[in-house]
């Protein structure tokens, strides 16, 4: 059978859904999302490698969070396709853990830290499966991994911003997924939490798991990530941090919004010609 052709590329040229390389954790082809008439994300191709930490970077309003949500099927896409470990999104749901932005939920919701982490197991436990016993121990381990074991019985509104972020991360850990998609995990958290989260993510990577994070702090991209997608509605650049995260690509993504001295701080090792 002929492979179906989908109009995907930015110039409208049809692109065959070629088999993605086996090592890709998440492949986006021609992903377009719009709110009303204007595109929030337009025809983005990206290949996030497996077993690596990848960043999605770009200015405010570049569509970073929208891209992540579209990749997860949380917001509908106008066109494009999403492939997770070589299979369509629908059959790979249980291999993906999502960490939404902290501000996206009501923290006065009647739920304790332990209950939020338990939510990571709802899918696996089904409507009636027990959450006690082995699953409760897993919840406790995940809380311990993010340093929140002592807070298990607190109502979530009593936590600091960093602690709330850790709880969300623990919920994702409880899923024991292979691909972790995080939306601004370091936004508004304290330095200790940032260190703790980086450690957990690095440990996941060393277990061979894949991480894709929307990231806002250009100064830490080189320290934390292996791979980067620079986004400003369209794809600006993508690849290993060493080659894709340069003064030229930053200039292209941010326009005049970054000063030369700022770029110099971000790229200390002669990135600026």
């Amino acid at each position: 059978m002929q492979p179906t052709l989908t109009v995907a590329a930015e110039d409208g040229r049809p692109v065959a859904p070629a088999a993605p390389p086996a090592e890709a954790a998440l492949v986006l082809r021609g992903l377009t999302v719009s709110y009303g008439e204007s595109a929030a994300v337009f025809s983005v191709d990206a290949t996030f490698p497996a077993g690596a930490m990848s960043a999605i970077v770009g200015p405010n309003g570049a569509g970073k969070s929208t891209l992540l949500k579209a990749a997860l099927g949380v917001v509908p896409r106008v066109s494009g396709e999403v492939t997770v470990f070589g299979t369509p999104l629908a059959s790979a749901r249980d291999r993906i853990a999502y960490v939404p932005q902290r501000a996206s939920v009501d923290w006065d919701f009647p739920t304790r830290v332990r209950d939020v982490v338990e939510m990571g197991l709802y899918r696996e436990a089904g409507l009636f499966g027990r959450l006690s016993g082995a699953r409760a121990r897993r919840v406790a381990q995940c809380l311990d991994r993010v340093g929140m074991a002592d807070f298990a019985d607190r109502q979530i509104g009593q936590l600091s911003g960093g602690q709330q972020q850790r709880v969300f991360l623990a919920r994702a850990l409880a899923q024991e997924a292979e691909l972790y998609l995080l939306d601004e995990p370091f936004a508004g958290v304290d330095a200790a939490t940032e260190r703790a989260i980086v450690e957990v993510l690095a440990a996941l990577r060393s277990e061979g798991r894949s991480i894709v994070a929307v990231h806002h702090d250009l100064a830490t991209v080189r320290d934390y990530f292996d791979h980067v997608l620079l986004l400003n509605v369209r794809r600006v650049a993508e690849g290993p941090v060493a080659t894709a995260f340069t003064a030229e690509t930053l200039e292209a993504a941010y326009g005049g919004r970054l000063s030369t001295s700022h770029v110099g701080e971000i790229l200390p090792a002669g990135g600026r010609a």
Partner: peptide, 11 residues
């Protein structure tokens, strides 16, 4: 009710 986007992402 608590986290709509996460629920949608879980399928």
């Amino acid at each position: 009710a608590f986290d709509r986007d996460y629920a949608a992402a879980r399928g």
